[in-house]
Amino acid sequence: MSKILIVAETLSGELHPTTAKAVACAQAIGGDIHVAVFGSGDQGPAQAAAEIEGVTEVLYVQHDENNAARAATLAPQVVALAAEGYSHLLAANTTTGKDLMPRVAALLGVPQVTDIMAVHGPRDFDRPIYAGNAITRVQAPGDFVLVGTVRTASFGAAGGGNSAAVSDKAVDAELPSHTRLVEQKTGGGDRPDLQTASRVVSGGRALGSSENFDIIFKLADALGAGAGASRAAVDAGYVPNDMQVGQTGKIIAPDLYIACGISGAIQHLAGIKDAGTIVAINNDENAPIFEIADLGLVGDLFEVVPQLTEKLG
């Protein structure tokens, strides 16, 4: 039977919602599921992890260095835990997971399966290549520890209501001092996280300015949705990069995605094709976004979007 360790992710002292998605992937693999939470004192995220359905044990690893999570200092701690007979080490395929897990794999001398989108067996997965334009089935012959990252858009979050045991875990690992966190500038705000929001409203270059993006935020708030943007809008400086949806930004799978003034470059479409229902609003009826949209509306977004906000608010 598999014994799976999920490396939890925390942000601003809270358990990140993508951790429950990695747990869902572990449930598909099947086996004993443990979650490792790395912190420097506050057990809150560990308690939150204990509530995720399917988790049998939470390991809380305290270290002063863990007040600022970095791949260089986390990897040796994960590897120390791995020695306890885990068959799988998994993390969400977020920028944190992407940064960390190859370091873990290299310390263990094993390959990594990036972006697991479906599970056929404990060592048999689907993963996207070419920005999702092809899917490969990948197997890991042998019995080396399976290191992987989980495509969060492909798994619904595991449920809550669990109360797994939380144990303190001391790890014996030498942590390097060559990497220091200077600062983090996070967009934050009260809107739902893009990677876990059930509804997302995005704006493109057609918005024309930072100020005009306000209509996107208003519609997002009326719907209780996350707010995103195309790469063109980010590159034009209208909004910060953490809002970028697409292959080079965030890959998301909300139930409802509303694209406003987004033409639909391949790399943007790659980031939304797992969404439930895609709505496109664009004044160009030939925009490629309409080829992938479930519902399309040709019109001036400066009229349509405020109307939507008003009628839905």
Binding site: P111, P128, I135, T136, I278
Partner: peptide, 22 residues
């Protein structure tokens, strides 16, 4: 070193065609 084996490559599943609203 241990390696992964790609056993199959296939196109992604497409989406159902959508429709326009007025």
């Amino acid at each position: 070193v241990p390696t992964l084996e790609v056993t199959e490559t296939r196109p992604p599943s497409g989406r159902e065609p959508g429709r326009m609203v007025k």
